[in-house]
Simulated scan of single mutants.
Amino acid sequence: MLETARFAAMMTRSADLKRRIGNELADTVVQVVDVCETSLRGGGKLMFCGNGGSAADSQHLATEMLIRLRPKTERQSIAALALTLDAAALTGCGNDYGYDRVFERPLRGLGRRGDVLFGITTSGRSVNVIRALEAARDMEISTIGLLGGTGEPASSQCDLALVVPDTETARVQECHIALGHAVLELLEDRLIARPYR
Protein backbone atom coordinates (compact mmCIF):
# COMPACT_ATOMS: atom_id res chain seq x y z
CA MET A 1 0.00 0.00 0.00
CA LEU A 2 2.85 2.37 0.83
CA GLU A 3 4.43 1.98 -2.62
CA THR A 4 1.14 2.52 -4.44
CA ALA A 5 0.59 5.74 -2.49
CA ARG A 6 4.14 6.86 -3.27
CA PHE A 7 3.63 6.10 -6.96
CA ALA A 8 0.39 8.10 -6.98
CA ALA A 9 2.18 11.00 -5.25
CA MET A 10 4.94 10.96 -7.91
CA MET A 11 2.42 11.13 -10.73
CA THR A 12 0.44 13.88 -9.00
CA ARG A 13 3.56 15.96 -8.41
CA SER A 14 4.66 15.54 -12.03
CA ALA A 15 1.19 16.46 -13.32
CA ASP A 16 0.97 19.46 -10.98
CA LEU A 17 4.35 20.74 -12.16
CA LYS A 18 3.32 20.38 -15.81
CA ARG A 19 0.08 22.27 -15.14
CA ARG A 20 2.05 25.02 -13.41
CA ILE A 21 4.61 25.45 -16.18
CA GLY A 22 1.80 25.21 -18.73
CA ASN A 23 0.32 28.34 -17.17
CA GLU A 24 3.53 30.19 -16.30
CA LEU A 25 5.83 29.44 -19.25
CA ALA A 26 3.48 29.60 -22.26
CA ASP A 27 4.65 33.04 -23.43
CA THR A 28 8.32 32.09 -23.03
CA VAL A 29 7.78 28.84 -24.95
CA VAL A 30 6.36 30.83 -27.88
CA GLN A 31 9.37 33.18 -27.71
CA VAL A 32 11.70 30.14 -27.82
CA VAL A 33 9.84 28.88 -30.91
CA ASP A 34 10.26 32.33 -32.49
CA VAL A 35 14.03 32.26 -31.88
CA CYS A 36 14.37 28.75 -33.30
CA GLU A 37 12.30 29.57 -36.38
CA THR A 38 14.32 32.72 -37.07
CA SER A 39 17.56 30.77 -36.77
CA LEU A 40 16.49 27.96 -39.08
CA ARG A 41 15.05 30.32 -41.70
CA GLY A 42 18.37 32.18 -41.63
CA GLY A 43 20.41 29.03 -42.26
CA GLY A 44 21.19 28.29 -38.62
CA LYS A 45 20.88 25.11 -36.59
CA LEU A 46 19.72 23.96 -33.17
CA MET A 47 22.28 22.52 -30.74
CA PHE A 48 21.71 20.82 -27.39
CA CYS A 49 23.94 19.94 -24.43
CA GLY A 50 23.57 18.50 -20.93
CA ASN A 51 24.93 15.83 -18.58
CA GLY A 52 23.58 12.39 -17.70
CA GLY A 53 19.83 12.28 -18.24
CA SER A 54 20.06 15.75 -19.76
CA ALA A 55 22.62 14.40 -22.26
CA ALA A 56 20.06 11.77 -23.24
CA ASP A 57 17.42 14.51 -23.54
CA SER A 58 19.83 16.48 -25.75
CA GLN A 59 20.18 13.53 -28.10
CA HIS A 60 16.45 12.80 -27.97
CA LEU A 61 15.42 16.34 -28.91
CA ALA A 62 18.05 16.76 -31.63
CA THR A 63 16.93 13.47 -33.18
CA GLU A 64 13.29 14.57 -33.15
CA MET A 65 14.28 17.43 -35.46
CA LEU A 66 16.91 15.71 -37.56
CA ILE A 67 14.85 12.57 -38.22
CA ARG A 68 11.19 12.72 -37.15
CA LEU A 69 9.06 14.06 -34.32
CA ARG A 70 5.57 12.76 -35.20
CA PRO A 71 5.12 9.54 -37.18
CA LYS A 72 2.28 10.85 -39.36
CA THR A 73 3.99 14.16 -40.15
CA GLU A 74 6.20 14.25 -43.24
CA ARG A 75 8.69 17.09 -43.59
CA GLN A 76 12.30 17.74 -44.43
CA SER A 77 15.11 17.04 -41.99
CA ILE A 78 15.74 20.01 -39.68
CA ALA A 79 19.30 21.01 -38.77
CA ALA A 80 19.93 19.93 -35.17
CA LEU A 81 22.72 18.24 -33.24
CA ALA A 82 23.57 17.16 -29.71
CA LEU A 83 27.03 18.14 -28.46
CA THR A 84 26.92 14.94 -26.37
CA LEU A 85 27.13 12.48 -29.27
CA ASP A 86 30.84 12.08 -29.98
CA ALA A 87 32.53 9.92 -27.34
CA ALA A 88 35.99 10.58 -28.79
CA ALA A 89 35.49 14.35 -28.68
CA LEU A 90 34.02 14.28 -25.16
CA THR A 91 36.76 12.10 -23.71
CA GLY A 92 39.49 13.85 -25.67
CA CYS A 93 38.37 17.25 -24.44
CA GLY A 94 37.91 15.95 -20.89
CA ASN A 95 41.43 14.57 -20.95
CA ASP A 96 43.13 17.54 -22.66
CA TYR A 97 41.14 20.53 -21.38
CA GLY A 98 39.03 19.26 -18.48
CA TYR A 99 35.42 18.20 -18.17
CA ASP A 100 34.26 21.78 -17.67
CA ARG A 101 35.00 22.45 -21.36
CA VAL A 102 33.50 19.34 -23.00
CA PHE A 103 30.64 21.32 -24.57
CA GLU A 104 32.35 24.68 -24.99
CA ARG A 105 35.22 23.31 -27.09
CA PRO A 106 33.10 21.57 -29.79
CA LEU A 107 30.63 24.46 -29.76
CA ARG A 108 33.44 26.84 -30.72
CA GLY A 109 34.24 24.64 -33.72
CA LEU A 110 30.71 23.77 -34.84
CA GLY A 111 28.63 26.76 -33.78
CA ARG A 112 27.98 29.76 -36.01
CA ARG A 113 26.45 33.17 -35.45
CA GLY A 114 22.68 32.84 -35.67
CA ASP A 115 22.52 29.27 -34.32
CA VAL A 116 20.62 28.33 -31.16
CA LEU A 117 22.06 26.47 -28.15
CA PHE A 118 19.81 24.71 -25.65
CA GLY A 119 21.66 24.23 -22.36
CA ILE A 120 19.95 21.60 -20.21
CA THR A 121 20.71 21.37 -16.49
CA THR A 122 18.25 20.20 -13.85
CA SER A 123 20.10 22.12 -11.12
CA GLY A 124 21.02 25.21 -13.15
CA ARG A 125 24.57 24.74 -11.87
CA SER A 126 26.34 22.44 -14.37
CA VAL A 127 29.64 24.20 -15.02
CA ASN A 128 30.21 22.69 -18.47
CA VAL A 129 26.73 23.76 -19.63
CA ILE A 130 27.26 27.26 -18.24
CA ARG A 131 30.62 27.53 -20.04
CA ALA A 132 28.95 26.49 -23.30
CA LEU A 133 26.21 29.09 -22.80
CA GLU A 134 28.85 31.77 -22.12
CA ALA A 135 30.76 30.78 -25.26
CA ALA A 136 27.55 30.83 -27.29
CA ARG A 137 26.81 34.38 -26.21
CA ASP A 138 30.35 35.41 -27.22
CA MET A 139 29.67 33.89 -30.64
CA GLU A 140 26.25 35.57 -31.08
CA ILE A 141 24.46 32.23 -30.77
CA SER A 142 21.04 32.46 -29.09
CA THR A 143 20.96 30.72 -25.70
CA ILE A 144 17.97 28.83 -24.34
CA GLY A 145 17.96 27.19 -20.91
CA LEU A 146 15.98 24.12 -19.89
CA LEU A 147 16.66 24.48 -16.18
CA GLY A 148 15.49 23.43 -12.72
CA GLY A 149 15.46 24.89 -9.23
CA THR A 150 15.91 28.65 -9.43
CA GLY A 151 17.70 28.27 -12.76
CA GLU A 152 20.76 30.12 -11.49
CA PRO A 153 23.53 30.60 -12.30
CA ALA A 154 22.83 29.17 -15.78
CA SER A 155 19.77 31.37 -16.23
CA SER A 156 21.98 34.47 -16.26
CA GLN A 157 23.67 33.17 -19.44
CA CYS A 158 20.37 32.49 -21.25
CA ASP A 159 18.49 34.76 -23.59
CA LEU A 160 15.38 32.78 -22.66
CA ALA A 161 15.01 30.32 -19.77
CA LEU A 162 12.40 27.63 -19.23
CA VAL A 163 12.81 26.96 -15.50
CA VAL A 164 10.98 24.07 -13.83
CA PRO A 165 10.46 25.28 -10.24
CA ASP A 166 11.47 22.06 -8.48
CA THR A 167 14.68 20.46 -7.23
CA GLU A 168 13.84 16.77 -7.65
CA THR A 169 15.84 15.67 -10.67
CA ALA A 170 13.34 13.11 -11.98
CA ARG A 171 10.40 15.52 -11.86
CA VAL A 172 12.44 18.29 -13.52
CA GLN A 173 13.56 15.93 -16.29
CA GLU A 174 9.96 14.86 -16.92
CA CYS A 175 9.04 18.49 -17.42
CA HIS A 176 12.11 19.20 -19.56
CA ILE A 177 11.18 16.57 -22.11
CA ALA A 178 7.57 17.78 -22.12
CA LEU A 179 8.76 21.36 -22.70
CA GLY A 180 11.19 20.22 -25.39
CA HIS A 181 8.50 18.30 -27.21
CA ALA A 182 6.11 21.25 -27.02
CA VAL A 183 8.70 23.67 -28.44
CA LEU A 184 9.62 21.32 -31.26
CA GLU A 185 6.03 20.45 -32.14
CA LEU A 186 5.06 24.12 -32.38
CA LEU A 187 8.21 24.78 -34.40
CA GLU A 188 7.54 21.88 -36.73
CA ASP A 189 3.98 23.13 -37.35
CA ARG A 190 5.35 26.51 -38.44
CA LEU A 191 8.00 24.99 -40.71
CA ILE A 192 5.45 22.74 -42.39
CA ALA A 193 2.95 25.58 -42.86
CA ARG A 194 5.66 27.73 -44.46
CA PRO A 195 8.64 25.62 -45.59
CA TYR A 196 11.96 27.37 -45.05
CA ARG A 197 14.12 25.87 -47.81
Rank of each mutant, 00 (worst) to 15 (best):
T4A: 15
A5Y: 10
A8L: 14
A9F: 08
M11T: 13
S14K: 13
S14V: 07
S14R: 12
A15V: 10
A15T: 12
A15K: 13
K18A: 09
R20V: 04
N23D: 06
E24S: 12
E24N: 07
T28R: 15
T28H: 11
V30S: 13
V32G: 07
V33C: 08
D34V: 05
G42I: 11
G43W: 08
C49F: 09
C49Q: 06
N51D: 07
N51Y: 05
G53A: 05
G53E: 01
S54A: 12
A55R: 12
A55V: 07
S58T: 04
Q59Y: 11
T63Y: 07
T63Q: 14
E64A: 14
M65C: 15
L69V: 03
L69I: 04
L69A: 11
R70M: 12
P71I: 10
T73R: 15
E74F: 01
Q76E: 14
Q76F: 12
S77F: 07
S77W: 08
S77L: 06
I78A: 13
I78R: 13
A79Q: 10
A82E: 04
A87H: 08
A88C: 03
A88I: 02
A89F: 00
A89Q: 09
A89P: 00
T91S: 13
C93K: 03
G94R: 05
N95W: 05
N95C: 08
R101A: 14
V102F: 02
V102H: 04
F103L: 01
P106E: 00
P106V: 00
R108L: 11
R108C: 12
L110Q: 14
L110Y: 12
G111C: 02
R113H: 13
R113D: 11
D115Q: 06
L117S: 04
L117P: 00
L117K: 11
G119F: 02
G119A: 06
I120P: 02
I120H: 03
T122I: 03
T122N: 02
S123R: 09
G124P: 00
V127L: 10
N128G: 06
I130P: 03
I130A: 11
R131E: 12
R131G: 01
A132R: 03
L133F: 05
L133T: 02
E134W: 03
M139A: 11
I141N: 04
I141Q: 04
S142H: 15
T143H: 06
I144E: 00
G145N: 10
G145A: 10
G145P: 13
L147G: 01
G148E: 01
G149Y: 05
G149C: 03
T150Q: 03
T150P: 00
G151C: 04
G151S: 05
A154E: 04
S156T: 09
S156M: 05
C158Y: 09
C158A: 13
C158W: 07
D159M: 14
L160R: 15
P165M: 08
E168Q: 15
E168F: 10
T169Y: 10
E174A: 06
C175W: 01
A178E: 10
A178L: 15
L179D: 07
G180A: 09
G180H: 05
E185Q: 14
L186H: 12
L187Y: 04
E188D: 15
D189I: 10
L191G: 08
